[in-house]
Amino acid sequence: MEQATVKWFNAEKGFGFIERENGDDVFVHFSAIQGDGFKSLDEGQAVTFDVEEGQRGPQAANVQKA
């Protein structure tokens, strides 16, 4: 698992990007966020996640709020 920071997340559209420590951004979809209830992330929030290869490149999976 990697630890990184949420760059931005649009709760209405259900997706955003996580900024990795190496500077690369990773796409995150609300369905990858672990937990119950409304799944959203806040800008600047610390998260841990795995990286999977998606249809359009790397994307976050198993996202957990740190």
Rank of each mutant, 00 (worst) to 15 (best):
F30G: 05
A66G: 10
I18N: 01
V51H: 04
E43A: 15
F38N: 08
S40H: 12
V47Q: 01
E19M: 15
S31N: 07
G44Q: 04
G23W: 04
F38S: 06
Q3S: 13
N22K: 11
G16Q: 03
M1C: 13
V28Q: 02
D36N: 12
G54I: 03
F15A: 01
V47M: 02
Q55F: 14
Q34G: 07
Q64M: 10
V26Y: 04
N22S: 11
F17Q: 01
F9V: 04
Q64F: 08
F49I: 06
V63G: 01
Q59Y: 12
G37D: 07
I18Q: 02
P58E: 06
D24K: 14
N22H: 11
A60W: 01
S40K: 11
Q59A: 07
N62Q: 05
G14D: 01
G16I: 03
T48P: 01
Q55V: 13
V28T: 02
G54W: 05
F49L: 07
E12L: 13
K39V: 07
F17N: 01
F49A: 03
E53M: 15
N22D: 10
F15T: 02
F27Y: 06
E52I: 15
P58F: 10
D36V: 11
K7D: 05
G37L: 06
V51I: 14
E52G: 07
G57E: 03
A61G: 08
L41A: 02
D50W: 15
E12R: 12
D42V: 15
D24T: 14
G54A: 07
G57T: 03
T48Q: 09
D24R: 13
G14M: 01
Q59P: 03
A4T: 04
H29T: 00
N22A: 09
F38L: 07
A11S: 12
A11V: 13
S31R: 07
A61L: 09
Q34L: 14
A4L: 02
Q55P: 15
G23S: 07
A66C: 13
G57Y: 04
E12C: 15
D25I: 14
E2A: 10
Q34S: 11
H29S: 03
K39M: 07
D42P: 06
E21W: 11
D25H: 13
P58R: 10
S31T: 13
F49D: 02
D25V: 13
V51N: 03
F17L: 04
F38E: 07
V26P: 02
H29D: 04
T48F: 14
G16H: 01
K7N: 04
N22V: 10
E21T: 12
V47L: 04
T5H: 13
G35A: 10
G57M: 04
V26R: 00
V28A: 01
V28M: 06
S40A: 09
K13W: 12
W8E: 04
Q34C: 13
W8P: 01
Q55I: 14
E19K: 15
F15E: 03
Q64R: 14
E43P: 15
V47N: 02
K65C: 11
D25W: 13
D24W: 08
A66F: 10
A4E: 02
G14W: 02
S40V: 11
P58H: 07
F38D: 07
G14T: 02
E19H: 14
K65H: 09
G37F: 06
A66P: 07
G23E: 08
K65M: 10
E19L: 14
F27I: 02
F27W: 04
S40F: 13
G16W: 01
Q34D: 08
Q45H: 09
V6T: 04
Q55R: 15
A60F: 02
A46K: 14
H29C: 08
W8Y: 06
A11T: 13
P58G: 04
E43N: 13
F9Q: 05
V26D: 00
I18K: 00
S31M: 07
P58S: 08
A66T: 13
E12I: 12
F49G: 02
Q45R: 04
G14A: 03
R56H: 12
R56T: 07
V47H: 01
G23V: 03
K13Q: 08
F27V: 01
S31P: 05
D25F: 13
G44L: 02
I18W: 01
G23C: 08
D24S: 14
G23I: 03
Q59R: 12
A11D: 09
V26C: 06
S40L: 08
G37N: 06
E19F: 12
R20N: 06
D50H: 14
R56I: 07
Q3N: 11
V63W: 00
K65Y: 09
R56E: 06
F9P: 06
G16Y: 01
Q45N: 06
N10L: 04
F27K: 02
N22E: 09
D50N: 14
F49T: 02
G35C: 11
